[in-house]
């Protein structure tokens, strides 16, 4: 039995759109294989957990909540998170969390929010009169399709050859213009896909877990699980995206 440590950034503030389902999925898929995922919450004003970090997760929330955490994140933990990413620790950032880890976010009104710059990208909000990017989404990535739902006002633009997580097959993705969705830097993944993201995309969940195990437990290989129900939900989402967009 192996133990992994996951740090969940601001779970009490950034938890819209079923973000918790991602943690539940990583945790259950470890447990069903006889391993343990320990989840360490990092909330506002707290010190970074004193553990060997194997995984990092950050979700999203309303604009107000994101404004609340950005200072705490930048002042308190920027160096630590940069070092973890440089050390190939897998990190998953969804929606608002993805935006916070970019260089900056320019809201519809008010000042730019300066982010961590983990992803060489920025996000512009075109104004509240412009339609949000809402709907079912399908993304092609190196191991198949990612399905889910997107709901974001901001448009994200990747810079300097930053690799996207995948290519949009249905939906909008980063900005609805260039066909890219999400970003990948080292083992850090940013995406707009929720739904939750990981339950219906077990290949991505296991890929992230495999990267984490490979760093600390190179001998552990992940046993196959019965993903019949996951595949069924995945296929329903594929059909929905075809019908609706």
């Amino acid at each position: 039995m192996a133990t992994l440590n996951l740090v969940h950034l601001y779970p009490t503030v950034l938890n819209l759109y079923g973000d918790r389902g991602n943690i539940t999925t990583l945790s259950r898929r470890c447990a069903w294989r006889g391993h343990e995922l320990r989840v360490h919450d990092l909330n506002m004003g707290e010190a970074f957990p004193e553990v060997e970090v194997d995984l990092v997760f950050i979700g999203g929330d309303q604009d107000r909540e994101q404004g609340v955490v950005v200072d705490d994140l930048r002042r308190g933990h920027a160096t630590r998170i940069e070092a973890l990413v440089a050390d190939a620790v897998p990190l998953l950032a969804v929606c608002g969390g993805y935006q916070l880890l970019q260089k900056y976010y320019r809201p519809a009104e008010g000042q730019d929010l300066v982010g961590l710059g983990i992803f060489d990208a920025h996000t512009l909000h075109p104004g509240h009169e412009v339609a949000r990017r809402v709907g079912n989404i399908v993304v092609a990535w190196e191991r198949g399709t990612i399905v889910g739902f997107e709901n974001h006002g901001g448009r994200t633009f990747l810079e300097g050859g930053t690799a996207p997580l995948g290519t949009v097959l249905k939906g909008f993705g980063n900005n609805g213009e260039d066909g890219t969705e999400g970003a990948r830097v080292a083992n850090a993944f940013g995406t707009y896909v929720h739904g939750s993201l990981l339950p219906k995309n077990p290949e991505l969940a296991d890929y992230i877990l495999q990267l984490a195990f490979a760093r600390r437990y190179p001998d552990v290989s992940l046993a196959a699980l019965d993903d019949g129900l996951e595949q069924q939900a995945h296929e329903v989402a594929l059909v929905r995206a075809q019908e609706r967009l």
Partner: peptide, 15 residues
């Protein structure tokens, strides 16, 4: 269901 009156997004069940 995920019809318009239910909301197309079913993420909420994870909350």
């Amino acid at each position: 269901n995920d019809n318009t009156a239910d909301g197309h997004d079913v993420s909420w069940i994870w909350d």
